[in-house]
Amino acid sequence: MPTRLLLVEDDPEIARVVRDLFLREGYEVTWATTGLEGWEDFQKGDYDLALVDLMLPEMDGFTLCQNIRWKSDVPIIIISARKEDEDKVEGLHLGADDYVAKPFSLVELKARVESQLRRWKRYRGVQTAEHKMDYANDLSIYWDKLQVYRNGQEIIVTAKEFDLLKVLAENPQRVFSKSELYQHVWNQPDADGLHTVTVHIKSLRAKLIDPIKEPLFIQTVWGKGYRFIGEPL
């Protein structure tokens, strides 16, 4: 299988040069021109590395990096004209693995991509595939099958409910605002659906038999959002 790259860049001249470079090297490249398009492409495909610009329409590169990292450990390299140290630090803090400032050398970019891919392949080679996760209080989540079990019985959840549970459970103890959850799960660039998040969290809690006052899995952090507090076994 060819190595698959996701390139998210709204400057067509830069994007074409970068895309053509890696196509010549035998990579498979998907090019997205907005942050939202890049996020949708990432969810649909199986990528080995993402190249992300920061100044993107619809969804900025910081948010895109954050969304990708919540979902996957795939390497992320930021390519941006913004050279301020604060931008570099924020990008790396949100999960990016490297930062290349524009204008950049194609030779340097190629070397950085190859370096990150070597690390990614080693990581995947030793990584234990966790297709199932068990938690205290008889909760089991099957990631590949999109199934949830409580007390040995399957809980029928909707696709959106599973996606909410997944992003929370894969980032335990991290507080997610309703806006972040809506943007991540519903792929929307703004926070118009905050009530939608509330409704789905309420439904998910009911199905998990997870009382709001003494939660076992999903805790409300008042004024901030929600976090997953299930204890892994």
Rank of each mutant, 00 (worst) to 15 (best):
Q188M: 09
I78P: 00
L64E: 06
P215Y: 10
I155G: 01
M59H: 07
W70C: 11
S115L: 02
D85W: 09
P57G: 12
P2C: 01
P211I: 10
K121M: 08
K178T: 05
E154R: 15
M133S: 14
Y135P: 02
E214N: 15
R118Y: 05
N187W: 01
K160L: 01
V100M: 10
L208V: 01
Y149S: 09
R122E: 11
L168P: 07
W39K: 12
M59P: 01
D41C: 10
Y47F: 15
T196M: 04
K44P: 00
R24M: 13
N67K: 13
S140I: 05
V199T: 12
W31I: 06
K224A: 12
F104I: 02
R112T: 11
R118D: 10
K160N: 10
S80T: 14
T158E: 08
K102G: 00
P189C: 08
S179L: 11
M59Q: 13
I218T: 03
F62Y: 15
D144A: 14
T3L: 14
V185Q: 10
E108M: 14
L23R: 09
Y47G: 05
L168T: 04
D46Q: 14
P172I: 04
R82S: 09
K132G: 02
Q43I: 02
G225T: 03
T63E: 15
F162P: 05
Y27H: 13
R205A: 03
W143G: 13
G45E: 05
D11N: 15
R118I: 07
R205M: 05
V148K: 11
D210L: 02
D163F: 03
T33Y: 06
E170S: 14
D48F: 07
W39E: 09
T198H: 11
R124F: 03
W120S: 11
E84Q: 09
E40C: 08
L51M: 04
D144L: 11
E108D: 14
